[in-house]
């Protein structure tokens, strides 16, 4: 197996905010690997430690334990930063600078030569539909424009690894589509993408692998492949909430039983449908409906979070 682009090994981070305040364990014993060309999505409820994970990865904060490896070695300052592009959540850029000046700065500190820099600026601002606004102070930008400007800033030096923290927040549907397509394009170019989000549909569509982070712990990881395999060719019956005494019987049906907001969802391979339908009739449980779609990520997410907390 080739060396992972980024790997976190047993990383944990505890904040000690002050003398008399409680310590906060933001990330606990986190181990994950992102391979070259992979799109990894880190999902989790607010305050799960997603941003902290990213900051540890970037070296903005020091982990209390564990180590971070970049291509199998501890990241070296300067070289590592040249290979990554980072978009923070709600980026605050400078008020009075124009986007062009900001991007020039970015290119210069990243060692992108003058001509190349010019080309990249035109190209990226065109792609993100900011060409018109290139010479306007950033103060006059709307929230969505700032988000897109932040993406330009992250991608200008053509990094191999892109780290996005909530890239879709604050964007309108058009903007989302724009960013979405851009990420797909990056994926095609073979970039490694690590992002965290709580907009699950985006994650679902973009990611090769996902990790669910709950209270600083990686509660579950699943790849797109096992996600699909487990669910394909299956029948999903939506059942009403049942009395406790009936539950063992339901569980005995050898299907996958998941709690959903309006009842229970029973999943099983299609060929067992007659058998299970009979069993349900015997138990006197009505069928509310079926879900033709596979189990939504949302439900898995809620389940995982529920289990871990």
């Amino acid at each position: 197996m080739s060396v992972a682009e980024i790997s976190l090994k047993n990383v944990s981070k505890t904040f000690s905010p002050g003398l008399f305040k409680k310590k906060v364990e933001a990330v606990r014993d986190l181990t994950l690997e992102v391979g070259k060309g992979e799109v990894y999505g880190l999902i989790g409820p607010n305050g799960a430690g997603k941003s902290t994970t990213i900051r540890v990865l970037l070296g903005l904060i020091r982990p209390t334990g564990g180590e971070i490896l970049f291509r199998g070695e501890p990241p070296r300052h300067g070289e590592f930063q040249k290979e990554i592009g980072y978009l923070p959540e709600n980026p605050y850029l400078y008020d009075y600078l124009t986007l062009e000046e900001l991007l020039q700065f970015c290119g210069r500190v990243s060692g992108v030569g003058g001509e190349e820099r010019r080309k990249r600026i035109d190209e990226l601002s065109g792609k993100l539909q900011l060409t018109e606004a290139l010479r306007r102070p950033l103060r006059t930008y709307s929230k969505g424009m700032l988000q897109r400007a932040g993406i330009c800033f992250a991608l200008l030096h053509d990094p191999a690894i892109v780290i996005l923290d909530e890239p879709m927040s604050g964007l309108d549907p058009m903007g989302r589509k724009l960013v979405f397509d851009l990420v797909l394009e990056l994926k095609e170019q073979g970039k490694t993408i690590f992002f965290c989000s709580h907009i699950l549909s985006d994650v679902e569509r973009l990611c090769d692998r996902m990790g669910v982070l709950v209270r600083g712990r990686l509660a579950r990881t699943f790849g797109k492949s096992d996600f699909a395999a487990g669910c394909e060719a299956a029948v999903h019956l939506l059942l009403p909430p049942v009395e406790e005494r009936l539950r063992p019987a339901l569980e005995g049906l050898q299907g996958e039983l998941v709690s959903v907001p309006d009842g229970l969802l029973l999943s099983f391979p299609a060929e067992r449908l007659p058998e299970i339908a009979g069993a349900l009739t015997r138990l006197g449980i009505g069928i509310r409906g079926t879900r033709s779609s596979r189990v939504s990520l949302e439900e898995l997410f809620i389940e995982t979070v529920g289990e871990s907390s």
Binding site: L58, Q81, H157
Partner: peptide, 14 residues
């Protein structure tokens, strides 16, 4: 205050 510094330090700047 506004965390712009995180952006700046994601670039190769010591």
């Amino acid at each position: 205050d506004k965390k712009t510094i995180q952006l700046v330090f994601s670039k190769p700047l010591s």
